[in-house]
């Protein structure tokens, strides 16, 4: 069966809620039924066929072509299957994702992979603010799985993160790892100000020296045995993180945020 391919006909004016198109919701549906699904866009409820041309039939391999930054909630609560986004994704991409994989060729908006539980998300372009974070009011961000961003990420990546890996080949904006409780964020490029702000536990792994707040204390240089194991786990990725020459085990360790419990660590390659 050919992958179900939805090609966006026109750039939408109002944002479109794509959550009804998560693979598990399409499983039992005929193409006509999928075409007739309504998507909220502003005040209107538009049918899939009004917005997209439809090809293929395998709804467990969904391809969204000509995608746009106003297509929100792509892959929301995804329970399996794969979604490939050709173009940009809007806000709340892969929110609450439980399994499966999502690949975005372009950029993603706010709150990508927020509250993600498991699975794999790859963004070839840039991600907006609050990557892997928690929705306002919720206390738990990303709880598992892996996010790979080849470009840059906005502010507050990994806010309230609990578990899992966020791998960033490019730069991270301010407040990367804010309020983290656990998990790992690795940044190959530059990081912004207020790294790890109010983090409690968790690991920020950096290739470049950050500007650290005074509420982080220098704990000296260390050789860490777990790092090679961590890097080994990245080997299968389509990423510079898989590149053996990028790995290291010698780091400068900083502990913080002392305003919180101070058990978070910033590890900087030396």
């Amino acid at each position: 069966m050919k992958a179900l391919t939805l090609t966006l006909k026109n750039s939408p004016e109002q944002r479109i809620d794509m959550s009804p198109l998560a693979c598990q919701l399409l499983k039992a549906l005929a193409i006509e039924d999928i075409a007739a699904i309504t998507l909220q866009s502003g005040k209107r409820k538009l049918r899939v066929y009004e917005l997209f041309t439809i090809e293929g039939s395998d709804s467990q391999q969904l391809i969204i072509k000509n995608s746009h930054e106003k297509l929100d909630f792509i892959g929301k609560d995804l329970e399996g299957g794969s979604i490939s986004v050709v173009g940009d994704a809007g806000a709340y991409l892969a929110m609450g994702m439980k399994a499966g994989d999502i690949k975005v060729l372009g950029n993603a908006g706010l709150y990508a992979a927020c509250e993600m539980k498991k699975g794999y998300l790859e963004i070839s372009g840039n991600a907006g603010d609050f990557l892997g974070a928690a929705l306002p009011g919720n206390k738990m961000g990303m709880k598992g799985g892996t996010i790979l961003v080849k470009g840059n990420v906005g502010q507050r990546a990994g806010d309230h993160m609990r578990r899992g890996n966020i791998l960033i080949e490019g730069n991270a904006g301010d407040y990367c790892g804010s309020r983290m409780t656990a998990g790992t964020i690795a940044v190959m490029g530059q990081t912004g100000r207020y790294l790890g702000y109010a983090m409690r536990r968790g690991t920020l792994l950096l290739w470049n020296q950050p500007q650290l707040s005074a509420s982080f204390n220098d704990c000296g240089a260390h050789t860490l045995a777990f790092l090679p194991i961590l890097f080994a786990s990245f080997r299968t990725l389509n990423s510079r993180f898989a590149d053996v020459t990028q790995s290291f085990n010698r780091v400068q360790r900083y502990a913080g945020d002392m305003s919180e419990m101070g058990r978070g660590e910033v590890l900087v390659k030396i």
Binding site: Y197, S213, N217, D218
Partner: peptide, 23 residues
Amino acid sequence: LPDVIAVLRALVKGQPIIATAVC
């Protein structure tokens, strides 16, 4: 202010701060 307040809160909690000045 984010830096300054974080240090102030750490001091209120009695957490160690190595730096001698902040911003």
